[in-house]
Design a protein around this nucleic acid. Structure first.
Lengths: 136, 136
DNA sequence: AGTATAACATATTAAATTAGTATGAATTGG
DNA sequence: CCAATTCATACTAATTTAATATGTTATACT
């Protein structure tokens, strides 16, 4: 039950974008120098963020990344989902092929894990990038 | 951000104890047959549960485990803490030795991760074994 | 046009964590 | 005494996560 370093890095990096003027893109290298992060790894993370529509990119020299949404419209959940695929997976999904322990399908714990999953999602959804920036 | 299978197994197993008459201990083998779990692994888990004071044990034949507390006094948090040591660890704990990315100490994200950690702990603390049993 | 910068993409390696097994000792009811 | 069971530790295997390596594509600037 830990937040991945991918998510940590994404949060740090997106915070940089959030603080930056909206018209001028920030490069991975600048972000990583500032936040002391491994650039090639952060590159991968940004590709995911882009595929999830959280950032836009600009190619070539003077290029880089920009937020694709308002900073109060990007949640920690969005980030985790973008970056950590299956970031919360309940054990029993009703398919006994995948969940060996429920002999009969679906097992009695399905509701519990589903409810937890839902609550965690809602919680992480309630944490927005603007709040994160404010707390710095 | 996933619940470990250790926690899943512990929940399944403790549920068995919760349902069982309080005077008659349940053995690992019986629990594991019933819940389709790997006994030797569950043994380890139970030792941790015992060290955390969630269950009592009785040696020898006809021995096994019993809940050491009321079923409304055992929370999912208790179980996770017992079984998954460091089940929620914030990145920055104020020590830059451990958290490489905060050059100055402690980094600006400490508050964020601490708050999240606290909220998750409270949430998992709010889920009690009796509720879990009721949902079966 | 050529070059440097930076995103894009994928494959690989390395490290860490997690899951599970193996082996055996200690305890106790029958 | 014997079998059942907890207790303890060491080891192995599998999976996941973190990070690196190598190279391609796009584009601003000279």
């Amino acid at each position: 039950m830990n937040i991945s370093t991918k998510t940590e890095y994404a949060v740090r990096a997106l915070t940089e974008l959030a603080i930056n003027p909206a018209d001028k893109p920030l490069s991975i290298n600048d972000i990583c120098k500032h936040q002391n992060l491994p650039p090639k790894y952060v590159e991968q993370i940004f590709r995911k963020l882009k595929h999830s529509g959280l950032v836009n990119s600009i190619h070539g020299p003077k290029g880089g990344y920009l937020l694709a949404k308002e900073i109060n419209d990007i949640s920690l959940r969005d980030i985790m989902e973008a970056v950590d695929e299956n970031y919360v997976t309940p054990f029993c999904n009703g398919d006994p092929e995948q969940h060996v322990h429920c002999i009969g399908l679906p097992c009695g714990f399905k509701n519990l894990w589903d409810e937890i999953k839902g609550n965690l999602e809602n919680y992480f959804d309630s944490i927005r990038l603007d709040q994160i920036v404010d707390k710095l």
